[in-house]
Amino acid sequence: MTPLLPLTVRGASVRRRGKRLIGPVDLDLGGEGITVVMGPNGAGKTTLLRMLHGLARLSEGKVTWNRPLAEAQTRQAFVFQTPVVLRRSVRDNIAFPLILRGEPRARARARAENWVARVGLGEMAQRPAGVLSGGEKQKLALARALIFAPDILFLDEPTANLDGRSMREIETILRDTMAEGTRILMATHNIGQARRLASEVIFLYRGLVHERKTAEDFFAAPQTAEATAFIKGDIVE
């Protein structure tokens, strides 16, 4: 299969009611690894991810994949900041993308069972997803995103509600996913997590890309005052 990446972003911005939420952004995203997007609340992390995924309409500029858009759209997955849970069982939630793709119900469910176990929801496969806790819903959302083996995975604070053990499980899954060739773009507030996972860091501030560096360089020597303060744990407004 022809690679989906590189992704090319040129002068892209999103405006709502005249206010620019993000951009203009120029970005080339290729190869492998986990890119972590950091920045204070309201910096535009969610908007950036949604824009790249095609959920937030561009006001200016261009977002181009290595493949035609119609195909590119089927090869991306997105895990939302607030997990969206369908009113069905946990297993049927996870099988859902496969069923949309026309996979026979029985096979989709069997494959979903695997993922249910893999994200540690084994006991709850048959339960209505509505009863899951916040953290369990996040695991469900991750499994549902990974089940169709996307080429790129967008994650918007995927471990915000997880305890230490669940976070470790999820991070392991993300590393495995990356090792299997899925490109990951993840927004997080968790600096420790960024240090553990990131191969590179994009630092957003007030809708603009302030820095983009390998994780090593970013944490060793951030360029801008905002990023420095952010890493040190100072309050960045």
């Binding site: 959920l55 991306q76 369908l86």
Partner: peptide, 27 residues
């Protein structure tokens, strides 16, 4: 109400118009 919950997910998963409608009716 359900559509405002599901909107982003269904779009993200490229559900066709028909699939969106059936999903919403079922759920």
């Amino acid at each position: 109400e359900l559509w405002s919950d599901y909107h982003d997910l269904l779009l993200s998963l490229n559900a066709t118009k028909r699939q969106r409608m059936l999903t919403l009716l079922f759920d």
